[in-house]
Nucleic acid binder design. Structure first.
Length: 342
DNA sequence: TAAGCGACGCCATCTTGGCT
DNA sequence: AGCCAAGATGGCGTCGCTTA
């Protein structure tokens, strides 16, 4: 019987009370040593630390959660971790959370909304302190209601900037900046290639494009705005066709990296080359509306949406909510990365 | 005034005891 | 036997008090 009790006792994890008993101090004193708060002499602190080492004591996270009401867990729900958009955002989000003592947990969901709601419910059952939702789409009103009692920051590709705690790439400003750059370098005949017709973010990009053209008194040509699926071959065909029938075009804005790569081939098929020199009428300036890393083979001028920075700002917004100082995340300013193509 | 301690509260889950 | 309310349990953080 005694042996059984001893065996059972030895298997039990040491608690703060065990540490206190071994150190000859109160539980409160041990707690203060562990947290670094309160007034404890260095002599007592050292005795407590020795007792902790001797027993192999580790603070019980569940008990700490019970007392403080905080888990320090932050649930990150994202669409697809292998997607560059999500990966870059996640880099910023997790870095900022860890720097503030939070534990990021992430989970991905499929395309169906039910799966997204299941993932969110899972985090709510885990009693996370807050949630960061990274989604390609705008969030439904039902989901907003479901998350209304949980501090949440939203990042999405197509976001409505008037919604609270919502941040995302500012496509309008990005394309406005890119178009201005081309106009300032003498281009008046600029085409826009790429994106699906029903895409919200494409509409936003075209809005920025038109805004820049109009503010510089450049006449927009609707027939030079070409939609295109995410397919390099089709982008090449459409670019070649456009340039063959409209030789006055001197610059192209490409929707994304795939479109830009297709456009390079299309420009060559039309008997021209990619470059900044629009005076000899044989070079087409090409500007990609998506960040292309320096390591890429092509040397394209492009727009950097600062996705890592967006992730950091969303995490900062969530931390402010947790500290009961809710603000509103400021959107990042897209940067133009100048290279050889435009 | 520094150092240390007791008591309380957190809250989901389990146990106990009383009642029908 | 079944149900329900009340109490106990787990480990920890912190307020406010006591002691030297």
């Amino acid at each position: 019987m005694v042996l059984q009790m001893d065996s059972k006792h030895s298997a039990k994890k040491p608690t703060i009370a065990d540490v206190a008993a071994l150190a000859g101090v109160s539980v409160a004193a041990v707690s203060q040593v562990i947290s670094g708060k309160g007034r404890i002499s260095s002599w007592t602190a050292q005795i407590v630390k020795d007792a902790i080492n001797e027993l192999g004591y580790v603070r019980n996270h569940n008990a700490s959660t019970l007392r403080s009401g905080k888990t320090n867990l932050i649930g990150i729900v994202l669409h697809n971790i292998s997607d560059n958009f999500c990966a870059e955002l996640l880099d910023g989000v997790s870095g900022e959370l860890e720097a503030n003592g939070k534990i990021p947990l992430f989970i991905q969901y499929g395309k169906d909304g039910a799966s997204l709601e299941n993932r969110i419910d899972l985090f709510l059952h885990l009693n996370v302190d807050g949630i960061i939702l990274i989604t390609p789409y705008d969030v439904s009103d039902d989901l907003y209601i479901r998350l209304s009692n949980t501090p949440t920051a939203y990042i999405s590709r197509n976001c409505h900037y008037n919604k609270k705690h919502h941040i995302g790439p500012n496509y309008f400003n990005a394309v406005e900046t890119a178009t201005e750059h081309l106009i300032k370098h003498g281009h008046r005949n600029i085409a826009f290639i790429g994106g699906e017709k029903d895409s919200y973010s494409r509409a936003e990009r075209i809005g920025g494009f038109f805004s820049a053209l109009i503010s510089y008194d450049v006449i927009p040509h609707n027939e030079w705005i070409i939609d295109c699926p995410n397919n390099q071959r089709i982008a090449a065909e459409k670019t070649s066709n456009l340039l063959t029938h409209n030789p006055q075009i001197t610059a192209i804005l490409a929707y994304d990296e795939m479109t830009a790569n297709g456009a390079i081939h299309g420009i060559q098929q039309a008997g021209k080359s990619v470059g900044k020199d629009n005076y000899i009428a044989r070079q087409i300036a090409l500007l990609c509306l998506e960040n292309i890393p320096d390591t890429a083979i092509t040397n394209l001028t492009c727009i950097d949406f600062s996705l890592k920075e967006i992730g950091m700002r969303a995490a900062q917004d969530l931390i402010q909510q947790l500290e009961s100082h809710p603000g509103q995340p400021n959107n990042t300013v897209p940067k133009l990365i100048l290279r050889d193509s435009a």
